[in-house]
């Protein structure tokens, strides 16, 4: 396991991303590479879960796009994440919000945390 740790440390980047948790509403600015140019696309949604640790740590963001639920998994160590903006901290009682998948409309809302 030491070897895995060592290799991950060699690839580790300075963490410039803000802290967020499951239930938070965030905007991920993601670099989309087109040929030799890239543009930045924003993806806004609720964080469903934070999974893993080290270089393979990821987070899942869910949003409703044109009435259809979309989930996207981002690795924390991805060089293609330009920035992350935390819009609001949600008040949730669990770490993995998979129950949101079953809910639509007003029920799928997450209340905002008053104190963070």
């Amino acid at each position: 396991m030491d070897a895995v740790k060592y290799v991950q440390e060699q690839y580790a980047r300075e963490n410039t991303l803000p802290e967020f948790r499951a239930g938070d509403n965030i905007i991920v600015a993601y670099k989309i590479v087109e040929g030799d140019k890239f543009r930045i696309q924003e993806y806004r949604g609720d964080v469903l879960q934070i999974k893993g640790h080290g270089a393979t740590k990821t987070f899942t963001v869910r949003k409703i796009s044109n009435g259809i639920g979309v989930e996207r998994i981002f690795p924390f160590s991805s060089p293609n994440i330009d920035s992350i903006k935390v819009l609001r901290h949600g008040k949730v009682r669990r770490a993995r919000l998979f129950y949101l998948r079953e809910l639509v409309g007003k029920k799928a809302r997450i209340r905002e945390k008053s104190k963070y």
């Binding site: 895995v4 290799v7 991950q8 690839y11 670099k31 590479v33 080290g54 270089a55 393979t56 690795p75 160590s77 991805s78 060089p79 293609n80």
Partner: peptide, 12 residues
Amino acid sequence: MTSVFDATGKNV
């Protein structure tokens, strides 16, 4: 196993 990002930003 682990995964690393190469120069083009691909997860390998």
